[in-house]
């Protein structure tokens, strides 16, 4: 029993990261109507700037800030491509473009970071925060979940209480109508891309030491993130948050069971499949009638 609890708690850091990446995916989808497959890759780019600076002997916290700035700029650059050239494209075209950009980012990222070459990733928050039923809960777990909750609360407040948030909601509903009213559509879209880039980068910096820190592995964290977003039907921040954390815990539990441990990376895929089948159930009934 204690082993199971230990495994579940071990999954919390990953869960917090999936939740934050998922909430960022929902934020991007709701506000600029893009299912963004590059979300984790943007954060990975910033994380590798941190790694490069750290390995070159720079002090850690200025390197973290430089990494977050790099992630923000990468997000803005991707956002510029999406708003400048694909602003009026359909949702499926935009999603396909982000898949192509993901492939490009991974290719360039692997080339620049030396492929599978191991890197010295600094552990930003080592140690235990507290004990839960005899199990150590790491500072990284508390921090990623805290960051995910913070981003969710801030998103809600920002969208519902500020003029920029109001303009973003209008932009998400009818981009052209918003632009015709003088709303600075491109600037606001880039703000969304920049904000999600910054948060994603920080989350990946926290989780990177626990993963194989190569560009491909970190970039593909977008899969569980999109699974979490799907649990929130790409609308609800809170369901996405819960879905991401649950996904991490299930992954943690799976790693403690020998027979399923080697298949645990398929869990997000199974979740995506299950949610899609569940969401289609009424359509199937309708068809049957």
């Amino acid at each position: 029993m204690n082993a199971l609890l230990t495994s579940a708690v071990a999954g919390l850091t990953a869960g917090g990261t999936y939740a934050l990446l998922g909430v960022c995916a929902v934020f991007t989808y709701r506000l600029v109507a893009v299912v963004n497959f590059t979300g984790a890759a943007i954060g990975t780019a910033g994380t590798f700037v941190l790694i490069a600076l750290f390995e070159a002997g720079f002090p850690i916290w200025p390197s973290v800030l430089a990494g977050i700035a790099a992630g923000t700029l990468t997000g803005v650059a991707i956002g510029y491509i999406m708003t400048r050239w694909f602003g009026e494209a359909s949702a499926s075209t935009k999603a396909a473009v982000t898949v192509a950009l993901l492939v490009g980012l991974i290719a360039v990222g692997l080339r620049l970071t030396g492929g599978q070459h191991p890197h010295n990733m600094p552990d930003l928050f080592p140690g235990s925060a507290f004990r839960l039923a005899g199990v150590e809960v790491t500072i990284a777990s508390v921090l990623t979940i805290g960051l995910a909750v913070l981003f969710t609360i801030l998103s809600d407040l920002f969208l519902n209480r500020t003029k920029i948030g109001l303009n973003l909601r209008a932009l998400a509903d009818r981009p052209m109508a918003a632009e015709l009213l003088g709303v600075r559509v491109q600037l606001l879209s880039l703000l969304v891309w920049g904000m999600t880039g910054a948060f994603t980068t920080f989350a990946l910096m926290i989780i990177a030491p626990q993963r194989s820190p190569n560009f491909m592995t970190l970039s593909l964290l977008v899969v569980p993130a999109l699974a979490a977003a799907l649990i929130g039907v790409f609308r609800s921040f809170w369901w996405t948050l819960a879905g991401g954390i649950a996904l991490g815990i299930v992954e943690g539990l799976a790693s403690s069971i020998d027979s399923v441990s080697q298949y645990r990376s398929a869990i997000p895929f199974l979740v995506v499949l299950a949610v899609l089948l569940w969401s289609q159930r009424e359509a199937r009934w309708d068809e049957a009638r």
Partner: peptide, 28 residues
């Protein structure tokens, strides 16, 4: 661009009653 034309004083009420559906009247 359309936004710049709007800021220069050109307003366009499109056909099809393009309200922001999820926003209230006052928010619109």
């Amino acid at each position: 661009r359309p936004g710049a034309r709007s800021r220069e004083g050109l307003a366009h009420v499109e056909q099809g009653r393009t309200v922001f559906r999820q926003l209230t009247t006052e928010e619109n």
